[in-house]
Amino acid sequence: MLDTMTITKVVGGLCGAWLIYLLGGWAGEKLYEVGGHGEEVASYVIEVADNSGGTGGGEADFATLMAAADAAKGEKVFGKCRACHKVDGNNATGPHLDGVVGRNIDTAEGFSYSGALLQVGEVWTPENLFHFLENPKGVAPGTAMSFAGLKKAEDRVNVIAYLESLGG
């Protein structure tokens, strides 16, 4: 029933299908390639009004936002982080975040960091966390963290308030 010719046909069919898949992907990339020589240019830009609520990143704005931060709301927003981070002292895909506010960067016990976070600073201050949580890959290029970030400034300060409430 299963002789070597049948097995050879199955393996050949799988290899052929894989080759067609790879060539299709390559052709699709070439067909829809934007820009050239490493340039990334959007083919169409949609203009939107800036309604960031005056969070231009100024020192006074950050202090005002932190003063109004709500740890209970931050716990709800932290739900987005729970897929990779724990707050019970155990590392998961990412390092544990209990006691992260005020902790030296890249120092969670037992977690192997990529080294890219050292660009952020030396200590996880609330302001460092605020900027990092907005765009992790933009603030620390090369970080292994794949999270896109929290775009709302209120969400970021609420998460920071929640993390501060956990202590260490």
Rank of each mutant, 00 (worst) to 15 (best):
L2Q: 11
L2I: 15
M5Q: 14
T6W: 07
I7G: 08
V11Q: 12
L14V: 15
C15I: 13
G16V: 11
L19V: 14
L19I: 11
Y21D: 02
Y21C: 04
L23H: 09
G25Q: 14
A27K: 07
K30V: 09
K30W: 07
Y32G: 11
G35I: 12
G36E: 05
G38E: 07
A42W: 13
A42Q: 07
S43G: 15
Y44I: 06
Y44T: 14
I46G: 02
A49S: 05
D50Y: 09
N51G: 10
N51I: 13
N51S: 14
N51K: 14
N51Y: 10
S52R: 05
S52D: 06
G54Y: 00
T55Y: 12
G57M: 04
E59L: 03
A60W: 05
A60Y: 01
A60L: 14
D61V: 06
F62I: 11
T64A: 07
L65V: 03
M66L: 10
A67W: 00
A67V: 04
A67K: 14
A68M: 13
A69G: 09
A71K: 05
A71S: 09
A72V: 15
K73A: 15
K73I: 09
G74A: 09
E75K: 15
K76A: 10
K76R: 15
K76M: 05
G79T: 07
R82L: 14
R82W: 02
C84M: 08
C84F: 05
C84G: 05
H85N: 12
V87W: 00
D88Q: 02
D88E: 04
G89T: 00
N91Q: 01
T93P: 05
P95R: 10
P95Y: 11
P95N: 12
L97P: 04
D98I: 01
D98R: 07
D98T: 08
G99W: 01
G99V: 12
G102V: 04
R103A: 10
R103V: 03
I105A: 02
A108V: 06
E109W: 01
F111Y: 15
S112E: 07
Y113R: 11
S114T: 13
S114F: 01
G115Y: 09
A116G: 07
L118R: 15
Q119M: 01
V120E: 08
V120W: 01
G121H: 05
E122P: 04
W124P: 03
T125L: 08
P126D: 01
F130H: 02
H131L: 00
E134A: 05
N135V: 14
P136M: 00
K137N: 00
V139L: 06
A140Y: 06
A140L: 06
P141V: 12
G142V: 10
T143H: 01
A144F: 08
S146R: 11
S146D: 09
F147D: 05
A148Q: 09
A148H: 10
G149R: 11
G149L: 03
L150D: 08
L150N: 06
K151C: 04
A153Q: 02
E154C: 10
D155W: 12
N158C: 11
V159G: 01
V159D: 04
I160S: 03
Y162Q: 03
Y162W: 07
L163T: 08
E164Q: 15
S165Q: 06
